[in-house]
Amino acid sequence: MNTLATGCHLRARAHHLQQGAAQRGAAAIEFALVLPILIALLYGIVTFGDLFYTQMVVTRAASDAARAVSALPKSADQNAQQEKANSVAQDSLRATYPVLPEGTNALVNGDRCTVGSAEQISIQVNFPYRGMLPAITLPVVGTVGWGNRPLVGCAVAQV
């Protein structure tokens, strides 16, 4: 009787071990199916965060340039405004990006204009964005990425 109980116990233990191995195999397959989705999600979060941050930096550069141009004397001509806007915008961008991509510039949109009772100046900063991560290709979705697109920051300042 003792040997019969031991035999049943061994068979039950062997069956339990086989189920454990099957469970581990299923977990590995589930992980292999979910991992690409998690990587794509992480990629999207990182690249969108970088794009959003860069857009904030470009908009801040436009704001800094507008503030600096609005502080110029009213007698300043368009060239002086343009030089000041480019200088201040590029200095502001260099605080975050020490090497600026070719094509980065600030444009003074027209002369000072009067809106209501106040004069205003408008600045547009163009920044050719290069993504921090390369674009990736996903099986069903195709190529995903936000790299290599122009970002524009605009600001208006009262004179």
Rank of each mutant, 00 (worst) to 15 (best):
A62Y: 03
G110R: 04
Q90T: 15
Q82F: 08
Y43A: 04
A68L: 09
R11E: 08
I121N: 01
V152A: 08
F48L: 11
A61S: 06
G116D: 03
V159Q: 10
H16K: 12
I45F: 10
P139F: 01
C113Y: 11
G103F: 15
W146M: 07
A22Q: 12
L17D: 11
V141A: 05
L4N: 14
A14E: 07
A40G: 14
L41Y: 11
Q78C: 02
Q19L: 13
L17F: 14
I121P: 11
C113H: 09
S122W: 07
T114F: 05
Q120M: 08
C8P: 09
L17R: 09
N105Y: 09
R130Q: 15
A32W: 11
V69A: 02
E119G: 12
L42H: 08
G142R: 00
V88E: 05
P101Q: 02
K84F: 04
D77K: 00
G145W: 08
N126G: 04
A40L: 07
P150W: 06
V140D: 07
V144M: 11
A32Q: 03
Q124C: 03
A95Y: 09
I37Q: 10
I121T: 09
L33K: 10
R112G: 04
Q90K: 12
N79F: 06
M56P: 05
R67P: 04
T47M: 06
V88S: 04
R149Q: 10
N2W: 15
L93I: 03
A66T: 04
A21L: 13
Y43D: 13
D111A: 13
A95E: 11
L4Y: 12
T47Y: 02
V125D: 06
I136F: 10
S117G: 07
P150H: 01
V140C: 01
G153T: 01
M1I: 14
K84M: 10
A106T: 15
